[in-house]
Write a protein that binds this DNA or RNA. Structure first.
Length: 298
DNA sequence: TGCCAGGGATTCT
DNA sequence: AGAATCCATGGC
């Protein structure tokens, strides 16, 4: 989709079924989120593009998302990269028709799709961020995971202040790989998680792992599973949130289990075998099924 | 207060 | 290969 550009703003056209409000519900799920800020109907975020900090503000207008740059006029390249980031972040290029058709005949998905129609899989476009966030979220409650991310970002990210609020970028692998183990432990990451994050920072800082190349791999999951600290859940989480794989499926996800328990009005959480059976019909759209079910927990 | 949390590696059968 | 066990720490 070709951005409409004026001197004051840039617009990206959105699919007919795009629902900005539903996306904002997802984005607003934690009060501890510090990688963007939601102000009424605006989303404000800081990115680092070729070493420069670029603050942008997003609003919804009929048929499009409008991007404005409150601090500095962007270069053409910065505009282009922000547009690409937003298309990635808001999942604007996926046609959901196949998912919606499948969901019509699915007793579990039909109600959630009706309720949250137009919700996209809100992504984490930055591969390092997606991997680190997956590691941080392993086996701890989400509230504490956000606390860890907040400390991590505010210790090692870059920031600017706009209208009295501080905006942060996610730290670069190059910054993190240079840290002593003890500095990560001090954030109250476990020893293992500190090791995993340093390992990921190392392969990304050297360029051995990068998103563009990973996307060209015939088997992205196997490549991700080679990374220490990345198991089946994390690999599928990253494929879903960063690599736009509609069939990615974090089967072991506790949130998925709780959502299914609630949707099916069960006394206990479903077993993995039961989930495999329930989801047989979702083939090719497991990531969207999971994301809509997560939404039902908010 | 004890169980649980958007798991994974390691070690045991 | 599949099943236990450890890791570690805060939330509720």
């Amino acid at each position: 989709m070709k951005p409409i550009q004026s001197t004051r703003y840039t617009e990206i056209s959105t699919p007919a079924d795009f629902n900005y409000e539903e996306c904002l519900v997802h984005l607003g799920r934690s009060s501890q989120e510090n990688l963007y800020r939601i102000k009424e109907d605006k989303v404000i975020k800081l990115l680092k593009i070729d070493g420069e900090l670029v603050l942008f503000q997003l609003t919804s207008v009929p048929g499009a998302l409008r991007i404005e740059f409150p601090l500095n006029a962007p270069t053409p390249n910065e505009t282009k990269q922000v547009v690409a980031y937003i298309e990635d972040w808001f999942d604007l290029t996926t046609d959901l028709q196949g998912f919606y058709e499948m969901a019509e005949t699915d007793p579990i998905l039909n109600p959630v799709v009706q309720q949250y129609f137009g919700l996209r899989v809100i992504g984490v476009p930055d591969l390092f961020e997606a991997l680190v966030w997956a590691i941080m979220g392993q086996q701890i409650n989400l509230t504490f995971a956000y606390t860890l991310k907040k400390r991590f970002v505010e210790s090692y990210g870059d920031s600017v202040v706009y209208e009295g609020e501080t905006y942060w970028t996610f730290p670069d692998p190059e910054t993190i790989v240079a840290l002593p183990f003890a500095d990560l432990r001090a954030l109250q990451l476990t020893g293992r998680k500190s090791e995993y994050i340093l390992g990921i920072a190392a392969v990304m800082a050297t360029g051995d792992l990068d998103k563009k190349r990973l996307l060209q791999e015939p088997d992205m999951e196997s490549k991700l599973l080679e990374i220490r600290g990345v198991g089946a859940w994390s690999a599928n989480y990253v494929m879903m949130k960063c690599l736009h794989d509609a069939s990615a499926f974090p089967l072991a996800d506790v949130g998925l289990h709780n959502a299914l328990k609630a949707q099916l009005d069960m006394e206990r959480k479903p077993t993995l075998a039961e989930i495999t059976e329930l989801s047989a019909n979702w083939s090719g759209w497991e990531a969207y099924a999971t994301f809509y079910l997560w939404r039902s927990l908010l």
